[in-house]
């Protein structure tokens, strides 16, 4: 079997079950990212996740050109079966954040009121700023609605986006870019905005802006940051559930 017939089979939607390619490609691009990150002494554009994403899309694009099919078709047939298997593991990985959270239960018990209030008030302020920034950049209402729920995890943000007149696919993309950006830029942003002095605030911010990937970054920064990011992932999703629809209604977005 030549390479072309192999991928020819992979492209057949009836076969579709060739999951190895997706897993293999994901591993290879991520490892290349890790290598680049290491030899560039941690240059932020060479974060393994960012490199993996860009390189992965680029390779799929090259191959789709080579086989003369559209990129989405090639992605669906060749990459998605394997990608979905890896994607599934985000479920137990999200649950795993209960452990760094419980490890700093002392902080949770002492500051639970401050944490909940900060997330609610911070979310409302963020919504106003995001609304006026997107308005100022000339985006239409459909896209603005898609921008509002992005602090929640994708599974919550997408239906809310649809319900307030947004485009769920755009919201999902925003959630992904959030995570990739926060993972790449967290150290830099924490430094220039001087968020280091308050580990609780830094943790909550990372969990809100970067979802579970931001929490993984926060766990690396310290146990308090990790615990606070974990609690932020849960609480902010509930806050978005409650706050965003009335906000969009108030702003007349739908």
């Amino acid at each position: 079997m030549t390479w072309v017939t192999f991928f020819g089979n992979a492209l057949d939607p009836k076969v579709g079950g060739i999951a190895f390619f997706g897993i293999f490609l994901s591993l290879v691009v991520f490892l290349i990212g890790q290598y680049l990150f290491k030899i560039s002494n941690g240059f932020f554009l060479f974060q393994p996740l960012f490199v993996g994403m860009v390189l992965g899309i680029f390779i799929l694009w090259l191959m789709s050109k080579w086989f003369g099919v559209s990129l989405p078709t090639f992605y669906q047939a060749a990459y998605k079966p394997g990608g979905d298997i890896l994607f599934w593991f985000l479920n137990p990985a999200t649950i795993a954040f209960a452990i760094p959270l419980y490890r700093r239960n002392d902080v949770v018990k002492k500051f639970w009121l401050e944490i909940v209030l900060s997330l609610i008030v911070g979310m409302v302020i963020s919504l106003f700023i995001i609304y006026y920034v997107s308005k100022g950049l000339g985006l239409n209402n459909k896209i603005i609605s898609s921008m509002l729920p992005q602090a929640a995890t994708t599974a919550i943000a997408m239906p809310i986006s649809g319900a307030i007149g947004g485009v769920p696919a755009v919201t999902a993309m925003a959630c992904i870019i959030n995570a990739v950006l926060i993972y790449a830029l967290a150290d830099f942003l924490i430094k220039i905005f001087r968020l280091n002095s308050d580990p609780v605030g830094a943790g909550l911010g990372l969990g809100t802006a970067g979802h579970t990937v931001g929490s993984a970054k926060a766990v690396q920064l310290g146990s308090i940051q990790g615990a606070m990011a974990s609690i932020a992932v849960v609480v902010i999703s509930i806050v978005v559930d409650i706050v965003v629809p009335p906000f969009a209604h108030m702003m007349g977005l739908f």
């Binding site: 974060q47 996740l49 993996g52 992965g56 994607f87």
Partner: peptide, 22 residues
């Protein structure tokens, strides 16, 4: 839990590549 959390960045690669779809 520690193992899964250390893997998060890698597990997110398919989500990133998923953007090829849209």
């Amino acid at each position: 839990a520690d193992f899964l959390i250390s893997l998060i960045a890698f597990l997110f690669v398919p989500s990133g590549v998923q953007m090829a779809n849209s």
